[in-house]
Amino acid sequence: MRMQALSGPHRAVLALGSNLGNRRDNLQGAIDALADTPGIRVNVVSPLYVTEAVGGPEDQPEYFNAVVLVDTFLSPEMLLERANAVEEAFQRVRTEHWGPRTLDVDIIVYADKVSDDPHLTIPHPRAHERAFVLAPWVDADPAAELPGHGRAADLLAKLSMAGVVRRDDLELRLPE
């Protein structure tokens, strides 16, 4: 993969999710793989949340979710390419929209960039309505702002936390 250098670094927020296999290990593996990428520095890892599946088919296993804050010299497109490669390394299969998956890595925000490109919409088009994204993000960065929507904490306060449980006994760590 060719990494595109930019001036910067730029702050990005990535949401991680897994509901197949060893979910905690999948998330930790994604964090480690992102940290091993030239041009990406993982600065903050949120607490882990266990959440019910949203959308998609019924009767899915619960998700493990977390958010990481990174500084990157990669362009948004290259960051997406790396996120997809990390998913593939964990055997992510895209057969069913919002179906079960070993790993999901979504770009929630990239600096203050706003893009409605269908290949990469920034900020993530549904982040403002997803407690499983906002709760770990607010834990990781209480002052977080979602461009076009406002403070993440204010957005979270408007949402139900039913089915979204912080699990402090299941720790994720910053890579060494």
Rank of each mutant, 00 (worst) to 15 (best):
A157K: 13
P136D: 02
A162W: 08
H124D: 05
M161L: 15
L34F: 11
L48T: 04
R92L: 12
G163K: 01
N26Q: 15
V67W: 02
E52T: 14
R126H: 14
P118M: 07
D59H: 15
S46E: 04
M161Q: 14
A131Y: 00
A153M: 05
V114L: 09
L134S: 00
R2W: 10
I40Y: 04
A152E: 03
W137F: 06
A143E: 14
M78C: 13
A152M: 05
L159A: 08
D106W: 04
T37M: 08
E87A: 01
V13M: 11
A89C: 11
R126G: 11
G99Y: 00
L103C: 07
H124Y: 10
F64M: 07
D169Q: 08
E52W: 07
H124M: 07
P76H: 06
M1N: 10
D117Q: 07
V70S: 00
G21W: 05
D106R: 03
D112S: 14
Q4N: 13
H124R: 07
L14D: 03
L69N: 01
V93L: 10
E81T: 14
L103V: 09
G148R: 09
P142Y: 10
D32M: 07
S115E: 05
E129Y: 08
L103H: 01
R173H: 14
D117E: 11
H119E: 15
T37Y: 03
V54S: 07
F90T: 01
P125D: 14
L27W: 04
E87H: 05
R24E: 14
L156F: 08
Y63C: 03
G163F: 01
G29N: 08
L27H: 02
I107R: 01
E88P: 05
R41H: 12
F132D: 02
M1E: 13
R151W: 02
E145G: 04
N19T: 06
V138W: 00
G39N: 03
L174C: 08
R167G: 03
I108W: 00
A131N: 01
I107M: 09
L155E: 04
V67T: 06
T95H: 10
P118Q: 07
R126S: 12
S18D: 05
D25I: 06
G29F: 06
M1R: 12
Q28E: 12
D71V: 09
A162R: 15
P61H: 13
A30V: 07
G39S: 06
V105S: 00
I40E: 03
F73V: 12
L48E: 00
P76N: 12
P76Q: 09
